[in-house]
Design a protein around this nucleic acid. Structure first.
Lengths: 333, 333
DNA sequence: TCCATAATTGTAACCGGTTACAATATACTA
DNA sequence: TAGTATATTGTAACCGGTTACAATTATGGA
């Protein structure tokens, strides 16, 4: 059977209070007792029960990550797993644990999270900005549980971290401009996603700074399937820009392939830069230069912010933007 | 403040024992009391604390999944996330929760899991077969905690679930043979991985059943980078098989691309079949026919087996193989 | 109407820790 | 050496549930 604090106390010949003091690094304990308890713990391979501790303090040293599986297509699976990895890593450094709450279509996110909170299973929560709305957000607010949003949030008084996507769009565009091109296009299939419009914003800023007219560029909406992208290239084959910023790696991948098939030399004739170092970015031909979106760091940052919230006496809103880098490969000069 | 059982008892005008009986569906409780308690719980939005319950019963209604991040390259990230998703889904159906334990390079899996067990945070564990060795396995055994291995295990007396990879290899090969070809190759970069040698085994079985000599086929080892695969194709360009089974989608992807570049018509001249419906399989050109490896189901099965273990009085070893299907796309006739 | 029996209900101990408070041991001062 | 300040230690209540056992109430038969 697992050893309890009583076993340790008996073995060490002291009271349970003394053992507890040792465990909590209390200064009111004699050197001699410290040693006795240390040895007893060692001998019995004792580890205090989190259940008992948590019951007393009302905390669980556990954080939940709510993942919305319904939009894996938007991000790709890497995204979730990287956030999760970064989060867990940082939590572990702080002796916290990570609980996962997948919310697929049809599963009620709110009730699951409600139970998690009510049963005292979690001390805090990380959720994606897509989920930080309506009922769930309300629940989090009224239950006063610390939470951090991964991704930019419009909601009042929330705490969120995000990759600096405006900066990312800026860097991507700047990178292309540095090669001396004077027409840069922006490719996307939809401006609905926040991160796309932010990257586009950065793209516009960079062009403006360089004094290049946006009207020189082809901003194309509705590119979704490989076929649509092929059709787009067909239509624009004689008026292609010298370089393109693609809103995400998937579009860039199919775009590159289409150019390749038509014998257009990359990067000599047309350069392409994507975002996020996904499997597709590396598998593209030629391999794709991308703005590195360090999603793992996003998880780490979310964890750090949450830890701060847990130590603070009051919940305070705020935001944080993470810098980006560029991974140089063969689709740019 | 959160309501406790005492608040509910007071509100309902009964004792805490009666409330507890209601919570545990005890038969020794009058209809009238049931109703009073039900209303009190409703009114106070009460939910019993898992901490208190767990302290008493010594369980936590929580299962851990240990993920070894050091070999994402082998599986791709989808693999982990799908297992995790299936696992969590099934656990939730059983009112269990999922805790995640990432074990990257340099992080000590054993000590993390040891703490999880000692602190009574988890009732059971799912781990990948790669991790089910030595010290960790020993820890699990001596701590008597129920655990299930995802992936085939050689270890004595363990309980594992896996995709039936032999069957998968068989199905893939059979699928090609049905198109009337009489030379089928098997491509891989390494037979080290269990699942590769199993798929190869299935491939051999299928050929034998069809009376086709294996010596007709080219089994190539050491295919790793796109360059190596290109070199392989260059060497064998005049003696290619009519069809290939590739040990995984990544290899199939690069192989397809190389064939495509050389103007070899797919599937007319050469057919290719891969395994596991990854992003790359769908992004290949032409899109790749694959044997579907339902990793989500693997997670579900692991959860089911674990639930059984938790209800059983003794831990019993065993194994379970999951069937596979085929996703038809354009790389086969 | 009274008593045996069954159906409910309440009391209190317990799970494994923490901590306020009282008790004891030790050191120091006069 | 007595008396007081200080350093350690132990006792017991508590966190929020569960459950054995005792106590209470209701039911039925003589």
């Amino acid at each position: 059977m697992k050893a309890t604090i009583k076993d340790v106390a008996k073995f060490a010949g002291v009271s349970v209070a003394t053992v507890s003091r040792y465990l909590n690094h209390s200064p009111l304990i004699a050197e001699a007792s410290v040693e006795k308890v240390r040895q007893a713990i060692e001998a019995l391979d004792y580890q205090p029960s989190m259940m008992a501790r948590g019951l007393l303090h009302g905390n669980s040293k556990t954080i939940a990550l709510a993942i919305d599986d319904s939009n894996t297509e938007t991000y790709g699976n890497d995204f979730f797993l990287k956030i999760q990895y970064g989060l867990e890593h940082e939590l572990t450094r702080n002796s916290y644990y990570l609980m996962i709450c997948h919310v697929g279509t049809g599963v009620d996110a709110v009730s699951t999270v409600r139970t998690l909170i009510h049963e005292n299973r979690i001390d805090g929560l990380v959720l994606l900005s897509e989920m930080a709305h309506g009922e769930l957000l309300e629940l989090l607010r009224e239950s006063q549980i610390p939470f951090v949003i991964a991704g930019r949030s419009q909601e009042e008084g929330t705490l969120w971290v995000d990759i600096d996507n405006i900066e990312a769009g800026h860097r991507a565009t700047e990178r292309l401009l540095q090669t001396g091109v004077d027409s840069v296009g922006f490719l996307t299939n939809s401006f609905d996603k926040m991160f796309v419009s932010e990257r586009f914003q950065g793209y516009c800023n960079a062009l403006e700074a360089a004094g290049i007219e946006k009207k020189d560029c082809y901003i194309s909406d509705g590119l979704v399937s490989p076929e649509q992208i092929a059709a787009y290239v067909e239509t624009h084959k004689d008026i292609l820009c010298e370089a393109y910023v693609a809103s995400d790696s998937t579009i860039a991948f199919y775009f590159l392939r289409e150019l390749y098939k038509r014998g257009i030399r990359i990067p000599e004739q047309v350069q392409v830069i994507g975002f996020d170092d996904s499997v597709l970015a590396a598998a593209a031909d030629p391999a794709m230069t991308v703005v590195e979106i360090d999603v793992t760091k996003l998880g780490v940052s979310a964890a750090k912010l949450l830890m701060k919230q847990l130590q603070a006496t009051e919940l305070r809103p705020g935001q944080s933007l993470l810098p980006v880098g560029i991974i140089e490969r063969a689709s740019t000069k």
